[in-house]
Design a protein around this nucleic acid. Structure first.
Length: 490
RNA sequence: GCCGGUAUCGUCUAGAGGCCUAGGACGCCGCCCUCUCACGGCGGUAACCCGGGUUCGAAUCCCGGUACCGGUACCA
């Protein structure tokens, strides 16, 4: 079997969203699974909507996701260039061949005329197809149009009857009657080629073996098959992936909230989690596994396990998935990833000096309590900055006047503790509780609040041992003092 | 309108005619663990779009309907 070559061919008209990411991922997984090549190609022939900025952003986010391409922009390859505006001569050449073969003809109808006729047909209840009026123009007629100053678009001549069947790898055979197809435009009157033409020319030129794309392309596939036929090349295999939908089952778009991968990155989601989640949109390994590494996905990926029905993406599950991956991260790696968030938060300058606890140890303590990187600065702040605000509900519950002597007693024990460790702290606290005839929780809760300003968080003894003796004593005394002075009672 | 596709818990899905009293996951609820919160564990909630066939037997095959999605551009 020929070595597998797939491609992802985005048009740079927006940022990469979950649906496109899913499509890239499937292509990438398919290529890696088969040891083939993954090509990136920029389809920028829609000059009115394409921008270079979008192209750059899409590539940048692909790098971030770790979906590297083997050929394409930035790295080149045997079929360069990889953006279509730079490949115009190829299309001109292909068109020339089609002209010589008599497969295409010039059409002098203006877009306005066509739109008007389409509208008319639609109103009359007829199919809004091109009527083929320029199909058999005599050379005199052509000259007449030319002398009017009209520039022709080039249309592909299609058979009026018969049918074309697309052998789709996920949907099986899909049949299209030729009667519903019209002679479509290959090259616009301004000389720029159109998608259905260039996609086939490029996939052929780049020796693409499998086209994996969204199922919104299924209905256009027969047209592309005609281009391959006219060009005399064997078409690639096709696999149309089910679409990714918004919660209301409509097509995903900006108005459904944050759906671009850039948004997710800003929310502190991990690339491996996004990829893992995307993989499960329309595919499953079949053995019940859900949380998987990229490597596992490559190993398990197969087109015949891709479903046919569209799937609604679910932010809750994405976030859960993120938590799963984040919890597995080695604290050193987690620190590396969270750095930008700590910097943005202003917390980074407090970390890493001789003063505070080792960040890796702190992260290890809180990582299973957060879901995203964005949650982390808040979760670790009190390790590096004394709490300035105390949870109001916590204050009402745990900072009653009766708590002050308890805190003073506790501080005394901490001061005298030898050695100072998580274990000795726990022993001392439980002993003290025993002596005072209170439940350990009665000591623990006010202490946590004094130390962190919160009522929730990691094990008190673990966090206290990281905070250090001096800091613990200072914070606990301080809280006792403020309770006594009535600073909390207002 | 026409053409095409799709249809299993709210959501992602498993299911290739008997293994289905329909399994797993997210979410939600309860319990356990426990110094709180999380993590984890246990349990619960909840689905085969409808109608006809075929078959001894259908979530699975066929037909029809319905709904949804896509295409029908000198967009991609």
């Amino acid at each position: 079997m020929l070595s597998v070559r797939v491609r992802y061919a985005p048009s740079p008209t927006g940022s990469l969203h979950v649906g496109s990411a899913r499509t890239v991922l499937f292509n990438w997984l398919f290529a890696r699974h088969h040891g083939g090549a993954f090509v990136l190609r920029i389809e920028d022939t829609d000059q009115s909507r394409s921008t270079n900025a979008f192209a750059q952003r899409q590539q940048e986010i692909l790098h971030w996701l770790g979906l590297e391409w083997d050929e394409g922009p930035g790295i080149g390859g045997p079929h360069a260039p990889y953006n279509q505006m730079a490949r115009l001569p190829l299309y001109a050449n292909a068109l020339q061949r089609l002209k010589e073969a008599g497969a295409v003809y010039p059409c002098y109808c203006s877009p306005e005329e066509l739109a008007a006729r389409r509208e008319q047909s639609r109103r009359a209840g007829r199919a809004p197809r091109y009527d083929g009026r320029c199909r058999d123009l005599t050379s005199a007629e052509r000259r007449a149009f030319e002398s009017e100053g009209r520039r022709p678009a080039w249309r592909l001549r299609l058979p009026d009857d018969g049918e074309t069947v697309v052998h789709d790898l996920v949907r099986g055979d899909v049949t299209f009657a030729h009667a519903i197809l019209d002679d479509f435009v290959l090259v616009r009157s301004d000389g720029l080629p159109v998608y259905n033409f260039v996609v086939a020319v490029d996939d052929a030129a780049m020796e693409i073996t499998h086209v994996l794309r969204g199922d919104d392309h299924l209905a256009n596939t027969p047209k592309q098959l005609f281009v391959y036929r006219a060009l005399g090349v064997v078409p690639p295999a096709f696999a149309h992936l089910p679409s990714v939908l918004a919660t209301d089952r409509s097509r995903l778009s900006k108005r459904h909230g944050p759906v671009s991968i850039e948004d997710y990155r800003e929310q502190g989601l991990l690339p491996e989690a996004i990829l893992n989640y995307c993989a499960l949109l329309g595919w499953s390994p079949g053995d019940g596994r859900e949380v998987m590494s990229l490597h596992e996905m490559v190993e398990a990926f197969s087109l015949d396990r891709v479903g046919k029905a569209g799937s609604v993406y679910d932010v809750d599950k994405l976030r859960w998935m993120n938590g799963q991956h984040l919890h597995q991260l080695d604290p050193t790696e987690l620190l590396r990833r969270v750095e930008p968030w700590l910097r943005a938060d202003g917390l980074l300058k407090h970390i890493g000096g001789d003063e505070g606890p080792a960040p890796e140890a702190v992260l290890a303590l809180v990582q299973e309590r957060v879901e995203t990187l964005a949650d982390l600065p808040e979760a670790i702040r009190y390790f590096y900055v004394r709490p300035s605000v105390f949870d109001p509900a916590g204050v009402r519950r745990h900072f009653q006047p009766s708590a002050a002597p308890l805190l003073r007693a506790a501080a005394g024990r901490i001061l005298a503790l030898e050695p100072f460790s998580e274990h000795s702290l726990e022993v001392a606290y439980r002993a003290l509780a025993e002596e005072l005839s209170v439940k350990a929780a009665v000591l623990i809760h006010p202490t946590r609040l004094a130390l962190t300003g919160r009522t929730v968080g990691p094990s008190l003894f673990a966090l206290a041992s990281l905070l250090g003796r001096q800091e613990c004593v200072a914070r606990v005394f301080d809280a006792a003092e403020r309770i006594e002075s009535g600073a909390f009672s207002m």
